[in-house]
């Protein structure tokens, strides 16, 4: 009974904050709202008998990834998204319909599952961290190592991409905006031609 109440509370919280993430115009609010979603999901992970995953969720997601997002949002000083002038409504309607169709497919496939998904009480074996570690460092050891390699590559890529431009590559930055596509409705991103070259202080 109390489990159902906790589930409903945090499920509602997760959906509401997910809607805020998607709908809010200010990226700072979106990012902070994602924290609420992630923590609600961490609570649900605990309900599902995965306390280690819940801890990882809070440590890695809300602790590292979201803080990274927030850092970039503040660093780039991204303001509110301006109201779109054209094509916005069609795109939004199509995206909404697509998402609804997807939801319908998943929900209808779950409907057949209904009634067969009652689970028994949690067992000591299932919650045990030792069993998880045995699985992770036994059967999935190679995958674990490959993930470590992936993280190393990602760190190198991020450093190269976000690092300061060298003198040689700074010369190749065009002074003016590049010409728009041929036959297109004029130059499309030359609103700030004077700002194309980054100022010296920006990293």
């Amino acid at each position: 009974m109390i489990e159902t109440a906790i589930f409903l509370l945090f499920a509602l919280l997760a959906v509401a904050s997910a809607l805020v993430v998607v709908l809010h115009r200010n990226p700072v609010y979106s990012t902070l709202s994602l924290v609420v979603t992630l923590i609600s999901l961490a609570v649900l992970f605990v309900l599902l008998g995965a306390p280690f995953i819940a801890a990882l969720q809070i440590l890695i997601y809300t602790g590292a990834i979201v803080v990274l997002f927030l850092f970039v949002v503040m660093l780039l000083n991204i303001g509110r998204e301006e109201i779109s002038q054209q094509r916005g409504l069609v795109q939004k309607a199509l995206a909404g319909i697509g998402a609804l169709i997807f939801l319908g497919i998943v929900a209808s496939s779950l409907w057949g599952l209904y009634g067969t998904t009652q689970v028994g009480p949690l067992t000591e074996d299932f919650v045990s961290l030792q069993a998880l570690a045995t699985l992770l460092f036994g059967e999935y050891l190679l995958t674990f190592e490959l993930v470590g390699l992936l993280l190393l590559v990602a760190v190198i890529a991020a450093t190269v991409l976000a690092g300061r431009l060298s003198k040689a590559s700074q010369v190749s930055v065009p002074e003016e905006g590049l010409p728009g596509p041929a036959g297109g409705p004029g130059p499309t991103y030359t609103e700030h031609p004077d700002q194309v070259t980054p100022p010296e202080g920006v990293r």
Partner: peptide, 19 residues
């Protein structure tokens, strides 16, 4: 599924890269 659908709609409609 609901959260995934919300995320899909957001990824398809928003123009801000961060969002």
């Amino acid at each position: 599924a609901l959260l995934f659908a919300i995320g899909t709609a957001g990824a398809l409609t928003r123009r801000n890269g961060i969002t």
